[in-house]
Nucleic acid binder design. Structure first.
Lengths: 201, 201, 201, 201
DNA sequence: TATGAATGAGCCTTCATTCAT
DNA sequence: GATGAATGAAGGCTCATTCAT
């Protein structure tokens, strides 16, 4: 429920990026902190040091910027999830890996984009929603699949429907973006353990 | 992550309300479904059958409408919470009462306003934020207090920090607004039990 | 060129007046200090303690208020001028009487209305202009007539066309409304003498 | 007291100017003839053949247009005054030069802007007033200084306080904007002589 | 590719005026 | 005569988008 400060990427990396990437990072940061509607194309252009008209050489319109932010985000999310699961064996390890991966995405460098993906979905045009739906449901299905395995392994409470559990857990984790402070009492590992404690038997 | 349809109040009640109340209900519904920024003052006026200029007889500006939606919502929330707790004795009953009360607020008639309160906080002017802060933190402190009692009673897992637990739980419950369907497999009582299973030992 | 504070009537007299008169005084004061366009009907109503809708029981529209302020002002001006001239014999006495009368009108209780008459003429509707033109030119002709007599009497420099002289003098006197301070170095009598010195040989 | 038609610049020159200059000329003309408050941003845009939104490419808001009109005007005024005084030797020549310069400013191409500067001061925002005050008082001090010299030289009546004299004269000259007709009986030189006759012994 | 002036639709807000009570 | 809710036409300003340079 609190205002949050958008995450800035490490300054060192900015100069090495393509204009498109710099625009997307600036957009993600602004969309997250001000919201899509309140962020003007000019804001984004300013942030990367070009004029507003020039943005339309990179994106057809503002909606496409939002879509690109989200699309890149889901793609990265899937890749990271794959990586995280690759080295996890037991059901518990796999569940922990997924939670940590999602938390790292929300609270780390990807945080702006993922927060935007989660909380600005409504701002997307219908077409863009359609075009993103496949990847997003792929990601959710990954969760459902793994949570089902966890339940089968007797890891989580069987009194909770795995579908509901995923939604509860998703809400809980997404919500961290609104209150988590990296200089607070918990680092991401510790927060992961708290979330594990929540879902595990 | 999915689009949701804003909750409409029972049509029967609409005609009996004051203009101000009808405006607030229309505003809550629109703010929830389209977002504050995308909702125009004309939209709201149309919804209640007046012209846009007339709105400013009831509210000084658009921000004040948002603030009123939220303020009424927090007030009702506190009242409902009090009522819910009045008839609850044991720690478990009290915890269940609070969860059910919050879920009913999110998914029932108050749902539009509460969803707006939670997810459009950023759209508020700074002054309005300040003016609402007291009630909002009063509500949160109620939660912290009761969760602490629940932990003392050995009801919830002591491995989770009650402050973190409230935030996880809040996120999980708020998030229901984005996926819950009243004609689905779970009614509010059943969902309450699922949430209870989540937080209890 | 400077901002001026509108003159307030003696508070004692306010209660004895008819609503219409109170409205006109409030209007004159506001029109003078804020300008006609920036003064809202609500402002005027507030000033006399009624609601804006009630004003239209006294005046058909805002333009009619302005016209009434001006019409009353010209009428009073003509009456005062007559009075002032009644007791003046010699050309010099008559000229002094007129200058003092005009200055008293500008800087005294009538000041708001007269300032409005002079500097808000443009804000009048065309019809209102027409309806006021007769009295106004009567007033100006009075000046031209007397200045002609003064020139015939060798009182003012014959190198100045009396028509031009009236306009110079009018401008000079009207302008006092923008700089004169009643608590400054000159009272109205002294200012009259300064103006006399200006126009006399 | 009469309506006046705003001065239009020679049509030949219009096309050669920058958009900003054309906007300022149009604004000066409209502000003078209709008043600042009655002039809409759309009016100004129409006059120069652009759309209303485009104005805000050149000026942040309407107030800034007014300020720019006035600021340019004072600057030009000071420059012209300097030029006029540069070739004037005797006190009488200097006084005549200043009067002619002010009259030319009021009744010539600068007339719209100067009339606006004098009669629309009240419409300025407080910040704009502050930002213009320095130049304006510099201009007035120039007058006070020269009038003092004129009095020391025995040129003007010593019975009039030079400060009052400047105000009388300023009012008289500013006022010409409301009655002077360039095709009437007096050209600017002749009017200058009439004004000289007014102030000189 | 970048620029930056221009577009034009649309937004929030104001305000004189009306009218049923 | 007063009220006050409603009207509806503007008004100032914003902003995504276009396009000639």
């Amino acid at each position: 429920m609190s205002d949050t400060v958008a995450i800035r990427p490490p300054a060192a990396a900015i100069d090495e990026q393509s204009p498109r990437e710099r625009l997307l990072m600036a957009a993600a940061s602004l969309f997250r902190s001000k919201g899509y509607d309140r962020t003007t194309v000019r804001d984004i252009a300013n942030e990367v040091g070009i004029l507003s008209g020039s943005i339309f050489h990179h994106f057809r319109n503002k909606d496409e910027i939002l879509r690109a932010v989200m699309a890149d985000c889901v793609d990265t999310l899937l890749i990271n999830m794959d990586k995280a699961l690759a080295s996890a064996q037991t059901p518990e390890q796999r569940l922990r890996a997924m939670i940590r991966c999602e938390l790292e995405s929300i609270l780390g460098e990807q945080g702006n984009a993922l927060t935007v993906l989660v909380f600005e979905w409504r701002a997307l045009s219908e077409e863009s929603k359609t075009s993103l739906l496949a990847s997003r449901s792929q990601y959710e299905q990954l969760w459902h699949h793994e949570l089902q395995l966890a339940e089968d392994a007797g890891l989580v409470k069987e009194s909770i429907d795995p579908l509901i559990l995923r939604r509860f857990l998703g809400g809980a984790l997404y919500w961290t973006t609104h209150w988590y402070q990296s200089d607070g009492d918990y680092n991401i590992d510790q927060l992961t353990e708290q979330a594990m404690a929540l879902v595990m038997k």
